[in-house]
Amino acid sequence: MKVNGGKVDVVLAGVGGQGIITMASVLADAAVNQGYNAIVAETHGLSQRGGTVIVHVRLGDVEAPLIMEGGGDLLLSLEATETLRYLKYVKKGAIVVMDMRIIRPPLPNVEVPQLPEILEELEKAEVEVYPVNAVGEAQALGNPRAANMYLIGYGLAIHGYGGMVSIDSLKQAIMSRVRNPESNIKVLLKGYNDGLNAVKR
């Protein structure tokens, strides 16, 4: 196993059914393909069924399965209100890439914060926020279910994932793990390019 003394902690958040476990597997596989260590902590069972989901992805020189509160380097979130829920898992100054969509919890009479308020709060929160339209971009490329790949690509462009993950190793991971790999790779690349453009700006 390659060790570069580095580690990257990536928090993935969203709603059950959005493909977050696949997202984590692809990211970790990409690091493992390059010879690095990876640990992914997920939960199964009850947490599917449309409930809130957090998956911890740890790359590099790490031992424990869970990211410490205040320890994560990035948060990739597939739903805006879930960003609020799991923000405590990242450190100050962390990168937050977030789909702007809000999914209403299926509860009668529930109060849901609106996007402008969420964005305003995140602006104040000492993190580097990148609001994106991952589901929309993925849909435009013909596969709305590939929004998770958009976020991985975007995150790579912004953060680099410590040199343990590359576009090629991600493509390889998608080829071996995901249904409809072609459209997923297209969305991955779109996310990566949009991320690069966001950095330039």
Binding site: L46, G50, L87, Y89, K92, A94, P105, L107, V112, E121
Partner: peptide, 13 residues
């Protein structure tokens, strides 16, 4: 950790 005032809605399965 960074903090926000806004609380997310409950989202049970």
């Amino acid at each position: 950790p960074p903090r926000v005032e806004l609380t997310p809605p409950p989202r049970p399965p």
